[in-house]
Amino acid sequence: MNAVEARDLVKEFSGKRTVRALDGVSIDVRPGSILGLLGPNGAGKTTVVRILSTVLVPDAGHARVLGHDVVREADIVRRLIGLAGQYAAVDENLTGRENLRMVGRLTHLPKKITLERSDTLLEQFGLSDAANRTLKTYSGGMRRRLDLAAALVGRPPILFLDEPTTGLDPQSRQDLWVVIEGLVRAGTTVLLTTQYLEEADRLADRIVVVDHGRVIAEGTPAELKADLGTTVISLTVPDSATARSVAAILSPLAPRPPVIDDATVELTVEEAPRVAAEALRALDQHGVTVVGLTLREPSLDDVFLRLTGHRAEEVAEVASGATSSDEGGTPSHDREGRR
């Protein structure tokens, strides 16, 4: 049995115009594994997590957590899950310890266990010194750790992490990754949403790529990369104007149009050595100087680009730029609804 199972989830949000946030999403998470739900902002990732964590009711489709229906058996599901989100849902007027105790009590743990567990988690997450300070004094990374600790107070076998490292500095991100890996080694099943390919590549056993409320690919990170079955030739030229003409010259050589990124042109091909030689010859004939040439295996970023026609992080930046005024304040349906 899968630890988490969702079938054909559909969810629409009505507003100024109706937005179909999910358009038939199915996912399976095997027990003790990490599933990475990868996609740009507004792809529907958060909506999936909110349905699985009983916060939202789907318009169609159904989902089960450890065999329990998230709508009809919501009370049971809530005792099996922990939820930590990108907006660090904690009370900033309470201290770290008070926040954890509140969650422990609301999880209906016996008082003694709540107290013990809160202190253990604070220590484990390096927050002992800050335990009696209000959250207003915490850094972003500390809040995020406290939010994760709060999700773990009830020792849930299933953990939902909605973009756990978005907006964190590299060190804090690394720290959280170590914690998440530790949780999975200890037997927790994790469903993680992310817009960072690197994060999915590092943490996830399987990846489901969503875009516009649909699953557009799934598999292990290796499978997704292998699907391209090809090599990327990356040519660097002196400037972006040259890059555009180079792309025009080289486009007959590859099955898909070349991708231009500033002064770099990338070709995704099957016979890399032959095409590379041809490309250099063609450019030489046109008198173009090539500054750099590399051949590499495709990254998840290439996979994403191929699948969606846009780069994951670019879109994420544009989207978060457009909604940055809502940072920390918008209910998730607005976040997800905006596209």
Binding site: Q124, G126, G141, G154, R155, Q171, V178, R185, A186
Partner: peptide
């Protein structure tokens, strides 16, 4: 802050102590 060293045993999902009684 220094890198976190989390003992996985302490984070293991437990039998639920929550008592819906």
């Amino acid at each position: 802050m220094t890198a976190l060293t989390v003992d996985p045993a302490l984070l293991a999902p437990g039998r639920r102590e929550s008592h819906p009684g």
